[in-house]
Simulated assay, not measured.
Amino acid sequence: MKILDRYILKKYFVTFFFTLLILIPIAIAIDVSEKVDKFLKHPDLSTHEIINDYYVNFIINYGNTFMPLALFISVILFTSKLSGNSEVIAIHSSGISFKRFLRPYLIGASIIAVVSLFANHFIVPKSNKTFEEFQETYLRNTKKYNKTYVRKINLQLSQNDFVYFGSFNLKSNNGYNFSYERFNGNELSYKIIGQSIKWIEKDSTYKISNYKKRHISQGEDKIESGIVFDTVFNFTPSELLYVDYLAKELPSDELATHIKESEDRGVKNLNNYKVELYKRTSLPISSFILTIIAVSLSSKKRRGGIGINLASGITLMFIYIFFLKVSEVLGATAEANPFWMVWMPNIIFGILAIVLFRYANR
């Protein structure tokens, strides 16, 4: 590695971590001031639990959130300083092209992107689970998520088998207004209706009460009814719960499997899950785009110095964050394509990065 690469990479990482170390303590200070009264309402809540279960995960979550902002600001800051000290002019005067000058920046962006990819796909989801459980237990006045009761559930068990629940209590494993239908092509061949259904975890079976069975064969119906009978279905009660918070708590391999199984079972709108999965990759990739934009903006010596570069950079950064949040919201709607909506900010700012790079490379 050349001396130039080591010099720029050192400044790249030092400024990046310094910027994070400024942003995160500010966020923690603001959060403590807002939450301290809620912490004090729970005398059994120890300082160790607050730090270990809440603020460690707070740092992981918000550090990951602040990563693009910290990266962008840090690159603008130290590149503007290099430019202000005429170091960039000296580098170019020695015969080093803008493309070669950009190489250590991209190496730094690659390292941050790889670390961020691993964290987004495996570390942050586990952190989110502990973080959400702490907030549900101690900080929220009302439960944000109902993890024990679901209503009006439709599941497709296979190509020809469908089940429906009017409601299901995941705590007691009891469901009501249950029906099961089996089709032969487009024709109904078998149906079970039950007033109630209970999952017997010990035997992995379901107990259906006050039931009616309907067998349909060559236009003839055979109806059977009874008080109770046991049967087996290829799903468990945990698969009935489809809520948004699960997307943030599942590692990516489990989330992808969950999406696939849910689609096979006929769950309609899984866009919230898909947005979360795609975002875990798109956000780290933005490291390259934001680095190119920041270097292209700040490598020229300007009359206003660092202030002008920083102002224009922060403006672009907030526009990027705005596009990012809007695309996530739109991507979660049933009509949208979540993949393209999540990647749209990177596509738009990727085009901007190419334009600015060509301008800076002249």
Rank of each mutant, 00 (worst) to 15 (best):
Trp199Ile: 07
Gly313Arg: 05
Ile112Thr: 04
Glu87Arg: 09
Met341Leu: 15
Thr281Leu: 15
Leu356Phe: 14
Gln195Arg: 14
Thr333Pro: 01
Ile28Val: 14
Asn169His: 12
Lys207Gln: 14
Val243Glu: 12
Tyr190Phe: 15
Ser189Tyr: 06
Phe168His: 01
Lys198Val: 14
Pro125Trp: 02
Asn61Ser: 13
Ile111Pro: 00
Val243Trp: 00
Lys144Asn: 14
Asn120Gln: 10
Ile73Thr: 11
Arg362Leu: 10
Asn160Ser: 14
Leu170His: 04
Asn128Phe: 02
Leu77Gly: 04
Asn173Leu: 14
Asn186Trp: 08
Asn128Cys: 01
Ile28Ala: 02
Gly313His: 07
Arg6His: 11
Tyr105Gln: 11
Lys129His: 10
Ile227Ala: 06
Leu246Ala: 09
Met1Val: 04
Ile347Ser: 10
Val326Pro: 03
Gly304His: 03
Glu335Phe: 11
Phe18Met: 13
Asp37Trp: 00
Val114Phe: 13
Asp5Arg: 07
Tyr138Leu: 09
Ser158Glu: 00
Ile73Gly: 03
Ile227Met: 00
Phe229Lys: 00
Phe134Ser: 11
Gly304Thr: 13
Lys147Glu: 10
Gly307Asp: 00
Ser116Val: 00
Met1Arg: 03
Asp244Ile: 11
Pro125Cys: 02
Phe134Cys: 12
Glu263Ser: 09
Glu261Asp: 11
Gly304Asp: 08
Ser172Glu: 15
Asp37His: 05
Asn169Arg: 08
Met1Asp: 06
Glu133Gln: 13
Ile59Arg: 06
Phe318Ser: 05
Tyr105Leu: 06
Ile292Gly: 01
Asp5Gly: 01
Thr148Asp: 12
Val329Gln: 07
Asp53Cys: 04
Ser282Gln: 02
Lys129Asp: 12
Tyr320Val: 03
Phe39Val: 02
Ile123Gln: 06
Met1Leu: 04
Lys274Ile: 09
Glu132Arg: 11
Ile112Cys: 05
Arg303Leu: 10
Val115Ile: 15
Glu276Ile: 06
Thr257Ser: 13
Ile354Asp: 02
Asn361His: 12
Asn160Leu: 09
Pro104Arg: 09
Ser287Met: 15
Thr47Pro: 00
Ala311Lys: 12
Phe339Asp: 03
Ser33Cys: 03
Thr205Ile: 13
Lys129Val: 04
Leu82Lys: 03
Lys38Asn: 03
Tyr242Lys: 13
Val32Cys: 01
Gly166Asn: 13
Asn210Tyr: 13
Phe122Val: 09
Ile73Asn: 01
Phe101Ile: 05
Thr130Tyr: 00
Asp203His: 03
Ala336Cys: 08
Asp31Ala: 11
Phe98Arg: 09
Ile227Gln: 06
His48Ser: 15
Ile292Leu: 07
Phe162Trp: 10
Gln159Ile: 12
Arg103Gln: 07
Lys274Tyr: 03
Val114His: 05
Tyr54Thr: 07
Tyr359Gly: 01
Asp53Val: 01
Ile351Asn: 04
Ala294Asp: 09
Pro338Cys: 07
Leu170Ser: 05
Tyr138His: 05
Glu328Ala: 10
Asn184Met: 08
Thr281Cys: 07
Phe233Gln: 02
Lys279Asp: 11
Pro338Gln: 02
Glu187Ser: 13
Asn128Pro: 02
Ser46Gly: 13
Ile319Glu: 00
Leu82Tyr: 08
Leu310Glu: 08
Asp264Gln: 14
Asp264Tyr: 06
Thr47Ala: 15
Ile51Met: 14
Leu240Ile: 02
Thr142Ile: 12
Ser80Thr: 10
Ile306His: 04
Lys213Ala: 09
